[in-house]
Simulated scan of single mutants.
Amino acid sequence: MKPTNSSICARTGLRGCAEERKFYYLALFEHILPSPPPPSPKKPGEPCSCNFLFNPFQRFVFFFFVNLFLLWRIRIPSFPMSSRDRGSPSSSSSSSSLPGIEKYNEKVKNQIQALVRVIKVARTYRDDNVPSLIEQGLYLGSVAAASNKNVLKSYNVTHILTVASSLRPAHPDDFVYKVVRVVDKEDTNLEMYFDECVDFIDEAKRQGGSVLVHCFVGKSRSVTIVVAYLMKKHGMTLAQALQHVKSKRPVASPNAGFIRQLQDLEKSMQGKQVTIAQCQA
């Protein structure tokens, strides 16, 4: 009988291995390296865990090169020829194989580009674990900042707004969480969540606490929510709100689709102001 991962881990004490593999593949999917889940405390007489062998960044580099090696080992698949191509050997390679090979090469190229993006982001990720103060009671940051429990406690953060599709709360017993499950794509409708996110931030402030808004990098999704909050609560224009956020967090840069949604918000706010002015006149 072939031993399962759980039985192997039970014998060797590597209880976190399967969970860490899931964690890193999730990181590759999102094109960012989150810090690994904390290891379980070692009890007397318990076998040692593998976590001491590598620090988080070394484990990331290891997984990066493993995936790169697997991509290199993949063989180009054979592509079936049509009945017409079987009768003309000279055209079989140009008519059937080449389009398939080009499509395959494009897929591999995209995968390698994704891995390159991961390692580039990882270089700056290790130092981006402190949230940026936007205004009193409102912070903006990355997933690393959201995992930095001691700093969050020292900043009186009580609520965490996660704007990402695949992130679970890192400290569910210590903070109040709200998770908006969206991906960082131009066609993602983030505008539909503006009002409930504003209410969540206001509730944290009313209770005397502070809120951290974060996604993976703290660059696009979370920035869009914070900019929308400043526009709605302080009547800022899009340009004013975005400039204010960039002055506090220079990496801030919502994608083009989110910018269009913020422009729509700005137009709707201007329309309401015109209507109110007409009613008062």
Rank of each mutant, 00 (worst) to 15 (best):
T162Y: 03
V116P: 03
Y193L: 02
K109Q: 14
S91G: 00
E196N: 08
V157N: 01
V183R: 10
L98W: 09
P99E: 09
L138N: 01
E196I: 04
D195K: 14
T158H: 07
V180C: 09
V130T: 12
N110W: 11
L138F: 07
K120Q: 10
D184W: 01
P99S: 05
A170M: 07
V176T: 13
P80N: 07
T158Y: 05
D128I: 04
R126I: 14
S91V: 06
F200T: 00
L190F: 02
A114H: 06
N105A: 15
R117C: 09
V143W: 01
D195T: 14
T188H: 04
Q111M: 15
V157H: 05
N156S: 14
V182L: 12
A122E: 10
P99M: 08
E186Y: 02
E102Y: 10
A145R: 03
R117E: 11
P169D: 03
L133A: 10
K178P: 01
S82M: 05
V163T: 02
V108I: 15
V157E: 00
R117A: 08
G137A: 11
S94A: 11
R117P: 00
N148R: 05
L140E: 02
R168M: 13
S95H: 12
P99K: 04
D85Q: 12
I160Q: 03
L138M: 03
K120P: 00
C197T: 03
D184T: 06
K109N: 12
D173S: 15
V198Y: 07
F175H: 05
H159M: 06
T158F: 04
A114Q: 09
E203M: 06
C197A: 08
S147E: 13
A164I: 02
K109Y: 12
S165C: 07
V198S: 09
S94D: 06
R126K: 14
V182S: 00
S78G: 07
R84E: 15
V121T: 12
N110P: 00
S78T: 12
S92G: 04
T162C: 12
E135F: 04
K185P: 01
G100C: 06
L167N: 01
H159N: 07
P80A: 09
D187T: 07
V151F: 02
S95C: 13
V130Y: 13
